[in-house]
Structure formats: structure tokens, C-alpha cells
């Protein structure tokens, strides 16, 4: 008998019903976004006119599929590009931070650790505008003193990358540090005693041990970067990532089933990536 569960059958039934309702609530909007990608209609709404894949693969207006829609494809490309760069950078910085906070002693360590977490609790919009403002202060300063136009610091992909990097690094640092904390330092000592150099120990013992955590940090960073909207919106220039392109389309054209198709694509994509990361995690549990 589970002491935590309600004792009367009626209450147990009510509780079960609540859980069921909750999962319906979770699934409803995602299902709605997904299902209408396959409806043979110009609007993502009832009635159901039959199954079609046109919103993915059709190459003519008015039912231009997402894989023939230049702007959406361009957005996808930009998102992939930004996501890969940002994840690589934030995993690299996160690994350094993990070593810094797990292995080193230095003054104000506790305060700096709090500072490391802070980016997670700053609203994304504020991160965006603050980086926008700071970059343009720097750019104006450079322009005035050296009369050198630093285009990079104007809204555009470089700033988008910096903006996403600023909070993703916190996430990767925490993930990698958690793994490093569990590392048995005796393994390193053994390798050192056997005559390995520090660099060699790092490359052959410590980093391979961290690899699964680095991989999941990469996946998480990539997914979050791909989905990010708030920070990106403030920093974006003419080249827009997919979420921004999609939002533009939604506001200017209104909802069309091609957006449902993109939603399906995104759900499948992130589902697969999340699954991959779970599989990698599971493998590392088996000795």
C-alpha cells in the first residue's frame, strides 16, 4: 500500500482524472499545431479536407510547401549556423568554467559562482537590449576615436551569437560541472604517477570522462538556441533565424498551414535530438 496515495478509491480516481486532464492540456496545442500541417486546406482550421503533404513538398503557390519556401529555408539555415557556433562556443566556455569552479581556489569564489548563475535569471529581452546597447556604445566609441566603422557590432548574426552565448554558457557550465564533481580525482593521480604529463591526463582521462556531459550540454544549448526568440529578437539584423522568420510570417501573413508544417518539422527535430541525448546518457550509465 502506497502511503503517499489517497486512500479512498474515489479520490484516487479523481487524482488519476486530474493527471489525464493535465496531459491533455499539455498535448492539445502541440497536437493542433501538428495535425493541421496535413490538412488539405488553405487555413489551419476545421473542417478536415483530407490528408496531404503539400505543405511540406508542394512547389507552387498558393500551397507553397516549407521545403520550397526560400525565406523559411534561409531562416532554417541561419538557425543551424547560429546554433552550431553558439553551442560549440558555450560548451568550450562551460568546460573552462567547470574546471575553474570545481578544481581551483581563488578569492571571491562564492560570489563569482552566483554571478555565473545570474544570466539565467535575467529576462531574455533585457539580455538582448543590454548587449545591443553596450555593443553600440563600443561601436560608436570606436567610430569616433578611430573613425573605423565596426559593422560587426551593429544588429546582426554576430550579436545574436553573443546574446545567446551569454546565457547558454551558464547552462553548459552547470551541466558539465555536475559531471566533473563526480569524477574520482584518484584516476588522474594514478595517470600522473604512471608518468603521464598533465596535458596527456587531460586528453586521455578527464576529457573522455566528461565527453557525455559535454555532448548533452551541446544538444541542450543547440535546442535552446534554435528555439530562442526573446534575446534574438532584440539583436537580429537582416539575416533572421527561423523563429524570427516564422513570427514575421505569423504577424504579417497570418497563420497559414506552412507554419504548422514548420512546427511539425521543429517538433520532430528537437524530439530526435532530445532522444539522442537520452540514449547517450543511458549508454554512459552502463559500465
Amino acid at each position: 500500500m502506497n502511503v503517499a496515495a489517497p486512500q479512498s478509491p474515489f479520490l484516487r480516481w479523481v487524482y488519476g482524472g486530474y493527471m489525464f486532464a493535465f496531459f491533455i492540456y499539455l498535448a492539445a496545442p502541440l497536437t493542433a499545431a501538428g495535425v493541421f500541417a496535413f490538412n488539405d486546406s488553405l487555413f489551419p482550421s476545421l473542417p478536415w479536407n483530407g490528408f496531404t503533404l503539400d505543405w511540406f513538398f508542394n512547389d507552387t503557390e498558393p500551397k507553397l510547401g516549407m521545403f520550397y519556401d526560400r525565406r523559411l529555408l534561409r531562416g532554417l539555415e541561419v538557425s543551424l549556423y547560429v546554433g552550431l557556433i553558439v553551442s560549440a562556443l558555450s560548451v568550450a566556455a562551460g568546460t573552462c568554467n567547470a574546471f575553474l569552479f570545481e578544481r581551483k581556489e581563488f578569492p571571491f569564489k562564492a560570489a563569482l559562482h552566483v554571478l555565473m548563475i545570474v544570466p539565467l535569471v535575467i529576462p531574455g529581452v533585457i539580455l538582448g537590449i543590454s548587449i545591443l546597447v553596450f555593443a553600440s556604445i563600443v561601436a560608436n566609441g570606436v567610430e569616433e576615436t578611430m573613425s573605423w566603422d565596426w559593422d560587426m557590432l551593429r544588429p546582426g548574426l554576430f550579436l545574436v551569437i553573443l546574446g545567446q552565448f551569454s546565457f547558454l554558457t551558464t547552462i553548459t557550465s552547470l551541466v558539465i560541472a555536475a559531471r566533473l564533481r563526480k569524477f574520482d580525482i584518484a584516476l588522474e593521480e594514478a595517470a600522473l604517477n604512471l608518468g603521464a604529463t598533465r596535458v596527456r591526463v587531460l586528453a586521455t582521462v578527464t576529457l573522455p570522462y566528461l565527453a557525455p556531459a559535454m555532448f548533452s550540454a551541446f544538444v541542450v544549448a543547440f535546442l535552446v538556441s534554435f528555439e530562442n526568440f526573446n534575446t534574438t529578437l532584440m539583436l537580429v539584423g537582416s539575416d533572421a533565424p527561423l523563429t524570427i522568420t516564422m513570427y514575421d510570417r505569423m504577424v504579417k501573413v497570418g497563420s497559414t498551414p506552412v507554419l504548422n508544417a514548420v512546427s511539425v518539422f521543429l517538433m520532430l527535430g528537437s524530439g530526435l535530438l532530445a532522444l539522442l541525448s537520452v540514449v547517450v546518457q543511458r549508454e554512459r550509465k552502463q559500465p
Binding site: F23, L30, A32, A33, F36, E227, T243, Y247, N260, L266
Partner: peptide, 30 residues
């Protein structure tokens, strides 16, 4: 895991899903 699935879907997709459900010509109204 079931609870976490929506976490991996962009805010935009979720909001779009609600729009499809709730707008005047949407599913719930229908």
C-alpha cells in the same frame, strides 16, 4: 519524459498551437 516534451518545442510553436485552437475559426470554436 512526457511532461518534458513541450519543453523542447519552441514558445512560438506552442503559442501558434493555442492560436489554431482558440481563434474565431479555430478548433474549439468549431
Amino acid at each position: 519524459l512526457l511532461c518534458l516534451i513541450p519543453l523542447w518545442v519552441s514558445d512560438l510553436v506552442r503559442a501558434f498551437g493555442w492560436i489554431v485552437l482558440l481563434r474565431e475559426t479555430g478548433v474549439v470554436s468549431g
